[in-house]
Design a protein around this nucleic acid. Structure first.
Lengths: 344, 344
DNA sequence: ATGAAAGCGCTAACAG
DNA sequence: CTGTTAGCGCTTTCAT
């Protein structure tokens, strides 16, 4: 016979039916074998497996999910990939997803919140089983929709006032408190803070932690030392220039994240100041780049990779058990003493 | 009637049938409207659109691709996300995909070539319409399979001896030649090279470019100055330590990529040497990190972002016209003179 | 211009 | 233990 592959479509793909024919069983049996179903005679199983192997059968995931109702794909909504921060979280999530045999769809919003909504909506298109929202900008706008649809999701490093979301975040307040306290312990009293992007909970918490530390050490809060940032390096640079123009220039700067701290370093250097002799600098996140600055950046570590992993675990849990009440997992931060701070 | 949403499945999703009912037409008409088919009465079209809108209809992409044969998803196979290099390429690809309304599936191999194969195989699972292979480790192993299946793919920064692949890469040879010539022009004659990962075409080309430049300037090639690297920072550090132990220590080091150059900087500094006074250093890629080293790293720029964009364009072209012969697009590199090189 | 009907490849009852 | 039979939601002929 020459019709060996006559039944193959233009896609050139071997289907479950081809395997069924080749092994002389019905195609539901093939399905059973392929899905590791228990009650199949060993000899049959072997025959099917052999045929599938020989024909190079690969399951069509589209069809499987259409019929079965799950896709084994989860979506990651991220602002971008160009900062070490997101990359680390995504890597962590990725590891965990691979372990559980899930595929990963990546949606980048480039900090355009309109896209965020569009993506979240497209989630209903059935492409994914669940969603990881990594530092979303305006979750309020669509969280309700997700909840109504009972669509599984996890928020990473972002908050939800309703308390009905699964959340993974870090001890932002404590981390900022620790960073500020550290500077105070080094003898600094004129400590500036460049905040994170307005509206993000992590930014707020870090600011509060900073203030609390000053308060607890009886250092009055100087509003001129608090500058609005946006988590980007350029803004760190810009705000630092402003701070350096101040008549009563600070002796230390705590940036709400590392990316901005890199900008701070740059600006301080441009002003001809030495780090850490003339200015102590501390960041937040502990992204990989902190190790290649000179001097090496002192910072507050977040377990970025772990956040990704934990977030996926939470999500998969939810997939298995949709009725499980929402949880919030907060990971510890840790001060990484390196080379950009010095006692005064 | 209270059965408004009686027909909705547990997925809670509005289907084409719901829209059909709501607008009083057959569901094939709905399909036509949704796909922008021409021959539909305006009034009908409006009615359908209105209903779809009102019910919050979102097309099920799984079903669509099962029936229609294309998924509007393309897969990216990347080694990892933890180095600026890949991130840039992915960003570029992402931009272009978004513009064309494609979704992106991300597969990370973590430099484990076994995974590469597995992923490429899983491509046949119908999840994606095409594949971007970004610096794949062992493409030889599965390229043939892809070609037989006539599965659209593009190689980024990797070669294929058969000449049957669409490829996007950079002028690696020329870039290395330029870098080395630059050092020679600065008066260096003892120039070391730390190579890229064995087996990658880009690594080979860069090595050859380095050698050619030396040759053209009548500088004998000193094998002791050529050290096997792997594109990772740690190896750059290690190899530099070896070079610095040499009796006849080089005065300049050309690392096959920036990541290794970062390691070089670190090692040189640990030896108490000044950069660039005691040692000139040059990298390759121009990843974002090169701007935050101190001094700023001189390097050879690849248009990483553009490579991603071009690769996607090539892929989409192929999707539209499967019979188009394979092309190879080579992007220009450019020397970025910064602060880590000095004349001797 | 629109409806009817046949799949796409697979899973999941339901029978035996 | 295995075969039969419905669909999953949609696109696409083929009629009308």
């Amino acid at each position: 016979m020459l019709d060996e592959n006559a039944s193959q479509k233009k896609t050139g793909n071997v289907t479950i039916i081809d395997v069924a024919k080749a092994s002389g069983v019905s195609y539901s049996t093939v399905s059973r074998v392929l899905n590791g179903f228990e009650h199949v005679k060993d000899s049959t199983r072997e025959r099917v497996l052999e045929a599938a192997n020989r024909l190079g059968y690969v399951a069509n995931l589209q069809a499987r999910s259409l019929a079965g109702g799950k896709t084994n794909v989860i979506g990651l909504l991220v602002p971008s990939l160009d900062n070490g921060y997101i990359g680390e979280v995504v890597s962590g999530a990725d590891e965990e997803l691979q372990r559980s045999n899930y595929n990963m769809m990546l949606y980048t919003t480039h900090r355009y919140s309109g896209k965020e909504e569009a993506y979240v909506k497209s989630i209903y298109s059935g492409l994914t089983d669940g969603l990881l929202l990594i530092v979303p900008l305006t979750p309020v706008k669509y969280l309700e929709a997700l909840q109504q649809q009972n669509f599984p999701y996890v928020l990473v490093d972002q908050s939800d006032v309703t308390g009905r979301s699964n959340i993974v975040d870090s001890t932002n307040w404590q981390g900022a408190y620790d960073a500020t306290s550290y500077l105070i312990k080094l003898g600094h009293r004129k400590i500036a803070h460049i905040t994170g992007l307005e509206g993000l909970q992590s930014a707020i918490d870090r600011l509060e932690g900073y203030k609390a530390a000053l308060n607890d050490h009886d250092i009055p809060i100087n509003e001129a030392y608090i500058r609005q940032g946006d988590f980007y390096g350029a803004k760190g640079y810009e705000r630092t220039n402003e701070l350096l123009e101040l008549a009563d220039c600070p002796t230390a700067i705590f940036a709400a994240n590392d990316l901005m701290a890199l900008g701070v370093i740059e600006a301080v250097r441009h002003h001809g100041l030495q780090i850490p002799q003339d200015m102590s600098i501390i960041g937040f996140d502990n992204i990989p780049q902190t190790l290649i600055t000179y001097p090496k950046l002192t910072t507050v570590q977040q377990s970025l990779n772990q956040m990704g992993r934990v977030a996926v675990k939470l999500l998969l849990e939810q997939l298995e058990n949709p009725d499980k009440p929402a949880r919030r997992i907060t990971l510890k931060t840790e001060l990484m003493e390196r080379e950009t701070c010095q006692s005064i």
